[in-house]
Every structure is written in structure tokens, then in C-alpha cells.
Design a protein around this nucleic acid. Structure first.
Lengths: 205, 205, 205, 205
DNA sequence: GCATAACCGAGACGGTACGTCACGTCTTCGA
DNA sequence: TCGAAGACGTGACGTACCGTCTCGGTTATGC
């Protein structure tokens, strides 16, 4: 099988499929081994790739896992269920399901832990996971404001603060419930959580 | 009648001072190296203790770190500041300060991450950190109920659920704010967080 | 001053049965584990004795094994089979059988090897094994001289040299055959060996 | 047609100089520490090589020491001193000198001792030391037969038995004299030994 | 007859080496 | 020119024994 652009560069062209194979192999290894027993050696073997290829593209295990996990979060969708409460319930259920997948549980908290002593890693997480998914809060809020369920924005700076607070509260509570308390973030729990949250958020500032 | 007096066991008893020295050395190593670069070798050296002594008392790095970090949480106190909001603000400030200490940041999330694949470890965390500190929520609630700031308990089961929810929301939000969003859980943020929280919690069920 | 009367010492006397149990346990461990995997820990356990008891009586593994093996050599007997050749054949067969017992094979060469860097150990081996068994050569010679099979002694110094040479040749050849060449020192081999040996020894000086 | 050319294997080839450095370091360590205190850790350090490199090439301490010692034996030469007795005296003197070198004393008996419980090790010793040096006996015999000092071979099987016997008697006696009796295998002893040996061997079967 | 003193078992202690594993780098060959 | 294969130095792992040291408890003699 000849390459697609034979005249573009001399030498052997880079394998186009390698990146996807590596990230998939990383998730597979996370499922079977967890973060602390995951090995670049092993990932390379699963991906059918040499160890050196990994080191050419990622600085280390942490960066690789962030990229592998970040892809999972793009699957989240904000449903339009008719009300703010129902919308949130929908997305939180998806989030809880995501946190139940072992490739996510194992990897996410581990890289967050590593990021406490590695500022570039924290930035990478923020950029490719946190800020990227804040879209869900933004969209949910504007949809609720259109419905009149939330007061319209006054100050844009105040608005950003509220979005941040909402995101920290939702993500934090679900993560804590799931990974620390070790209890399921199921329908009843989510509904009681949303009740408390919305009562607070919908009150006039 | 207590039959489990360890003094009755034959053989040389374990050094009483070693435990404290080891836990202190662990925290010191967490500050300087972080969880992933922390080595039992190194901890033993800092504590002036042989590596084998560590393995005699703890199953591994995870268990050791849990115990070292758990001691920090016992420093938390619920102040009596006159109102529920002020009480919470006080304790959350302490919690935020704790999460700012590198021995806590590095260690806590890491063992939580490990616990996603290690049920006994999760139980150890729950018992020596989570359940142990739930006392703060319980005391804060009963104090607020005495003041009339919260409705009195009706169903004890319902009460337990509320305590759990409160704990997950408070701890989760502060942790997420501090370690994931990477922004300070300072006075203004805490006050806006408490406003939302208390509006939701104080509403009649 | 009474130093050689252990009965007069105050305090609890050493257990008399312990020594025998320890040496037997040592041989048992040699059979099962061999010298290099033999552990004082393990010997103590087998003998139903504390590790400290071993250290009170022997300086270390080497000394213990020498004593355990030396006892085996006292079982050797010089048979009276009517001729020098037959006498030697009888004792060499016994010696070969001894070297086939694993507690002897494993232990003997190992302590000889250790003794190359431990002069006191070499002396202990010499005293409790080599010189002690030289009795067999001495008795065999004098019996053969009485029969007229060997020339009578002239110079006592010359005689000592011949005894030493004979012992080195007999013991050396059997050990080398058995342990290095790894072939059995059986009847045919022994007879051809004795033929060569006696032709040389019986010739006039 | 040689297909086992190691040059054709993929990947980085093994360092050629490492083997020699490791064996030399092993002998050096044998001189200074003896077999039982010799450490692969230490050998690796002396050779300027990582411990893992040792384990990649040798199964353990025993195999390494066999190879290190075997090289020493290739230095033995059979001199042509004009007569069988003088030839033997020459080579036995060399052998005795070899057994006086601490790297040989310490190592040789130790691996022989280990080989009593390790059949592959015994084979390795046999192949790389015993059988390899039997050349000296073979050459000495044929030279003596050419001179008419020994009867010519009749039966080739009988001849093999005689070679084996000779080797066991010579090597065994010298080793026993040197390492067990702890007395020097010097000129006078060697000559009296050879007298006995040759009288026996030169007699007609 | 009862204190004294050496013994005993048990087992924790500071060490040291083990043999393995993964790291991240390097060298070689083949495509 | 890139990638696979794999050897390399490094360093931590968790285990096993070492030889020493407390412990509480057990015999013997000798005052």
C-alpha cells in the first residue's frame, strides 16, 4: 500500500492512524490496569507501536492519559428536556455514567492529583477538559434564561463568576459522591441535589 | 474486660515513636516530592527507620499516605461564629487552607484516584477521612437547628441523606474549585457559594 | 578458679536436647534446601528453637554445618575383609555412599569453599573431619603391614607423609569422581582405582 | 549457511566489551570478597555496568562465577619436559599455582558445591572446565605413548576409562592437598605423588 | 525458700542484597 | 527519514535473612 502523498517528504511517512490507536490503547490499558499500573511499554505493545514513538509525541504518561480521557468528555450532550431541572438531570446522569467507566475513574483523578505539582499539566487539563466542557453550563444557562427560569445576565463579570461557581458545584458534587463517598449518583440523588442547587441559583442576587 | 491488650503479646513490642516519625516523614516527603515521586525508601530514611519497618506496619504507599493525610483533617474545628453561614464560612476557610498545604493536595487526590481500583483502600479513606469529618456537618446542623436556622429533623433516614448531600456538595465544590479549577477558595467565593447552598438547604422539603 | 565445671555456673543450664535437635534439623534442611538456601531461621524453626539459641552456640551457618556434617563421618568403619585391597574397597564404598547423601554433598564442599577465606573454619574442618578420619588410613596401613602387604615403616616422618599422601589421593579421587565428574564411584571404578593406588604404594621407596 | 548470526537480529546489539569487563570484575571481586560475600551489585559497579545487564546475560551468581573461573583454566599448558613424569610435574605445578590464586580457590569449590543441587550448573562446569582441560591428560598420554613410557591403547573404551581415572586422581589429589589439607602442593609432594601414580598407571593391565 | 542469674520463646529492629520492573535514552537495521 | 526492536544505565520495588536487641517467662543453683 503506497502512501497518499509520495512526493511530499522524503523518507518514510508517519503513520496516520498511530495517534488514534495509541489513545485507544491507553484507554484500554486504563480499564484493565488502572493508572498506577499502566505502562508506556504496555500501551505501545497494545497499539502495535514502538516505545520510542510514544516518547516522540507525548512527554510522558500524564500527558498521554489527559488526552485519552479528554476525548471521552466530548461525548457529553446537553439534552433539551423542557426545563432547566430536567436538562441538568440529563447531563448529570451522563456525567455520572462517564465517571463510572473505569478508563475515566482511574485516569481523571490521577492526573488531577499529578497536576497539583505540575502547572503545565494542570493547564492541559483545564484547556482540554474543564474549559471545554463549560460549554454545557453556558448553554444550559442561556436556554434557561430564554425560558425565564433564571434571571437574565446583568454584569458579564458576575455572569462568569456564576458559571464558574455552578460548574464547580455540579462537577465537584458529582465527583465527590461517586469517587469519594462511593455511592451512585442515581436519579433520586441527582434530583435532590438539583433541588438544592436551583433554589440557590434561581434566587435573586 | 479488654483482651486485646497488645502488651500481652510475646516478643519485642513495636517502637512507639516510630509511627509518629514515619507519618511526619511521609508528610515531609509529600511536600518536597509529591505523591508520585514519593518513595518508601526515602520516607524510611527521613524517619530514621529501616524500610522493613514500614512494610511491617503498612501494606504500601497508599495506606501510608492515607494515614499521614488523615491526621491533618483532625485539625479542622467548627467555630461558633454566631450564625450558620458564618460557621460554615469558618470551617470552609480552614478546609481550603488545608487543601492549599502541599502535603494534602498531593496526597489526597492521589489516594482517591488509587481507591477507584482498590476497594479496601476506599474503605480506609472513608473511615479515616470522610466519615470522621462528617462530624463537622452533623454538629453544624444541630447547632443551626437549635438556632432555628434550619428546620428540625423529621425522618432520621432523610436526615442522613441530607447530611451526605451536604457533605458531598461542600467538600466537592471546595475541592473542585481548589484543585481542578485552580482558583482560590477565598472569602468572596466562599460567601457566594454558601449563599447558594443555604438557600437550597433551608427551604422546606 | 573453676572454669571447666559448667555444672557450677549459676543460672539455667543450656538445654541438652537442643544441640542434637539443631544438628538433626540442620541436616534435614541441607537435604531439602542445600547449603546456599539453608537459613538459620529455618533451622531454628525445624528444631523448635529460637533463633537466638542458635547464635548463642554457633558463630554462624558455616560452623553449624561443619558440626552437622562431621557427625556423619563418624559412621565410617574400616571393615576387615582379609586383604588391603578389599579393606580399602569396603571403606571407599562407604565413603562414596556418604558423598551420595544430599546432606553431605551439599554441605561438605560448601564449607570447604568457605574455608578458603576463613582460616578458623578450615581448622575446624580439619580437626573434626579430616584428622579425625585419618584413623581409617592409619588402621588400614598397620593392618596391611601386619599382613605383609605393605613395607613396614622406617622413618616416622616419612610415614606421616605417606599417610597424608594416601589420604589426599583416596579422598581427593573419590570426591572428584563423585562431585565433579558426576559419575558413580561404584565397584568397578573403585577396583581399578585401588589397583593403580596399591601398585604405587606397595613398591619399595 | 549460518542463520544464527546474531548480527541479523533487530534492535541494538549487546555491548561486546561488557562481557570481558564483567568477567574481569567478577574475578577481582572474588579476590577481595570471596564467593559468599560476592554481590552482583558489586560486580556490576566494578565493571561499570548496570545490574540489569548482568541479569540479561547470566542466570545468576553461579553461572557468572563458572564463566569467570573457566577462563583461568585455559592458561594451563602441558610443557614438553622430556619425560612423562616431568611433563606431569610441570602441569601439576601450574595447576597448584592456579589453585593458590584466590579468585580460583574461592570460586571453584563454591560452584562445585552449588552444582550438587543444580544439574544444569554441573553440566556447565563439566563442559567449560573439566572436559575442556581433559585435553592435558590426552595430550600427555599420547606423548608418553610415543615415547614408549606408557603402553599403547588397546581398547578405545578402556582408554577413555583410564583418562577419566587419571584426571580424577590428579585433579582430586591436588585439590584435596591444597584446599582441604591446606598444605602446599610443592615440588617434593608432587614428585612423591607422581611416583605413586605412574607406578600404578605404567603397569600392564 | 527464694533471690539471682542465665537460659528460653518470640518477635521487632536497622541493615543489605536479592531479582524484577519500568523508566527514558541510545543504537542498529529494515522499509 | 521514520519506525520496530531491543540493549543500556538508573533507581525503586517488595521480599528475605542477617545478626542484634528487647521483652516476658522459665528453670536451676546457692545464699
Amino acid at each position: 500500500m503506497q502512501s497518499r502523498t509520495p512526493a511530499s517528504r522524503p523518507g518514510r511517512p508517519r503513520s496516520a492512524t498511530a495517534d488514534a490507536a495509541i489513545l485507544a490503547a491507553t484507554r484500554e490499558a486504563l480499564v484493565e490496569l488502572g493508572w498506577s499500573k499502566l505502562t508506556l511499554q504496555d500501551v505501545a505493545m497494545r497499539a502495535g507501536v514502538a516505545k520510542t514513538t510514544l516518547y516522540r509525541r507525548w512527554a510522558g504518561k500524564n500527558e498521554l492519559v489527559v488526552d485519552a480521557v479528554a476525548e471521552l468528555f466530548d461525548e457529553l450532550r446537553l439534552p433539551d428536556a423542557g426545563s432547566l431541572a430536567a436538562d441538568i438531570e440529563g447531563v448529570v446522569l451522563q456525567f455520572a455514567a462517564l465517571l463510572d467507566r473505569p478508563e475515566c475513574r482511574s485516569g481523571l483523578m490521577a492526573v488531577v492529583a499529578e497536576s497539583t505539582r505540575d502547572e503545565p499539566l494542570r493547564e492541559r487539563i483545564r484547556a482540554s477538559v474543564v474549559e471545554r466542557q463549560k460549554r454545557l453550563v453556558v448553554e444550559g444557562r442561556s436556554r434557561a434564561q430564554a425560558r425565564g427560569e433564571l434571571p437574565p445576565e446583568s454584569d458579564p463579570e458576575e455572569s462568569a463568576r456564576t458559571i464558574d461557581l455552578t460548574f464547580d458545584m455540579v462537577a465537584g458534587a458529582v465527583v465527590h459522591r461517586t469517587l469519594v463517598s462511593g455511592k451512585p449518583a442515581d436519579g433520586p440523588w441527582i434530583r435532590s441535589f438539583i433541588r438544592v442547587l436551583l433554589l440557590g441559583l434561581s434566587a435573586p442576587a
